[in-house]
Amino acid sequence: MEDPEQQVATTAMPKPAALQDTQRKEAFATSTGTSIFDAKGISIYYGSFRAVTNVSLTIYENEITAFIGPSGCGKTTVLRTLNRMNDLIPGARVEGEVDYRGANLYGSGVSPIAVRRRIGMVFQKPNPFPKSIYDNVAYGPRINGLHNKGKLDEIVERSLRQAALWDEVKNRLNKSGLGLSGGQAQRLCIARTLAVEPDVVLMDEPASALDPIATGKIEDLMHEIKSQYTIVIVTHNMQQATRVSDRTAFYSVLVNPESDTRTGTLVEYGPTQQIFEDPQDPRTQAYVTGRMG
């Protein structure tokens, strides 16, 4: 029954097998092949410190792409580059071009506000505003000028349904968003992000602060909305990557022995099945089989 050889060979692969098969069946099911993001050899600096170097990849529409890798490898930094959240850090800059549907994200005349309206983000630690649940979800549409109560009601309900939270909160929309459990709060944040009808949803380790049941709900949610949005998720949980993503990008750390600095870089990028079952780069293989990171 307990064959040690068998154990080692399958450490990198997740159980339960049932979900795995389902996921595999759905892989690329909704993909349209359109390129959403196109990063061309970008490097990201904080001041003079190079945090990430030479990343090139293409994110495709209606797919779930996972960024995985050991800590410090730059996966979150690259993610935040996609919606210009790094602009908030003084001294941060991007060298190289990042295109969003053909337009240079960092071109002159591009407004980060317009960018973020289209490219939403869910954070690691749920961060609902200290307002009511309704006002949390309505915040986005309201700042975009929508004040019609009827329309807002519609949008709030739709977003909360999409986030699989409606049934749990429909009778207490006026209660504070701070009173929700961790899993509910994160789904509220997802609803809030979906309320502005973005094109892309970026997720930075959205379930790392949650228990397994809440995590499962979020992963199911991702599958549900995949057909309408493009999702990029950073995760340090490899099983999660195999459960949800169509494509996976593996990042790692380059240590510069002279200056003792660590810079992140993209090592390998491809369909999830291929990354985990047939990695081309030895570093990828070391990571996904659990020998590193």
Partner: peptide, 26 residues
């Protein structure tokens, strides 16, 4: 908390909208 401010910005808020949405309630 910085994370609340980032949440507002991530929704495409201008600085003033972030202030009214995240800073002021706190």
């Amino acid at each position: 908390p910085q994370i609340d401010k980032e949440g507002a910005y991530a929704l495409g808020a201008t600085r003033w909208e972030m202030i009214t949405g995240a800073v002021w309630p706190h």
